[in-house]
């Protein structure tokens, strides 16, 4: 509750907060052991931020930011789960041909 009020008072996330979220998502994406999920998370992060680059309405910026934060939490949890059950054999896409 207090956090929500503070966020409302602060208003829209700053440029550095957005960039930090972007970098955290990319960092977490790289930690996925699965080739396809790793590539997708990277690609989706970049495309998502690119798509929302032109947002100007404070409400939509705030909601996109909180959505991104929720996605980061999901990615963090899932990258751990994927690493716990990673197959011994890598994808042929991860092997040098």
């Amino acid at each position: 509750m207090a956090a929500a009020a503070a966020a409302a008072a602060r208003g829209v996330p700053t440029r550095s907060e957005v960039l930090s979220l972007f970098r955290s998502l990319l960092r977490t994406a790289r930690q996925f052991s699965d080739y396809n999920i790793r590539e997708y998370t990277k690609r989706r992060t970049i495309d998502g931020f690119r798509l929302n680059r032109t947002l100007s309405d404070p409400d939509s910026i705030t909601s996109a930011f909180s959505d991104g934060k929720a996605q980061l939490e999901v990615a963090k949890r899932q990258s751990i789960i994927y690493s716990l059950y990673a197959p011994k054999v890598k994808s042929i896409m991860d092997l040098k041909s």
């Binding site: 396809n36 999920i37 996605q71 999901v74 890598k90 994808s91 042929i92 092997l95």
Partner: peptide
């Protein structure tokens, strides 16, 4: 690598059989 059904493969094959089934999205599993 992996040996199965007499075939030896150095890595897991790339998957292009989405009509048979698709991988579970990590967001779904979450």
């Amino acid at each position: 690598g992996i040996t199965m059904k007499g075939v030896r493969i150095s890595g897991r094959p790339l998957y292009l059989d989405m009509q048979a089934t698709s991988p579970v999205d990590p967001r779904v599993l979450d």
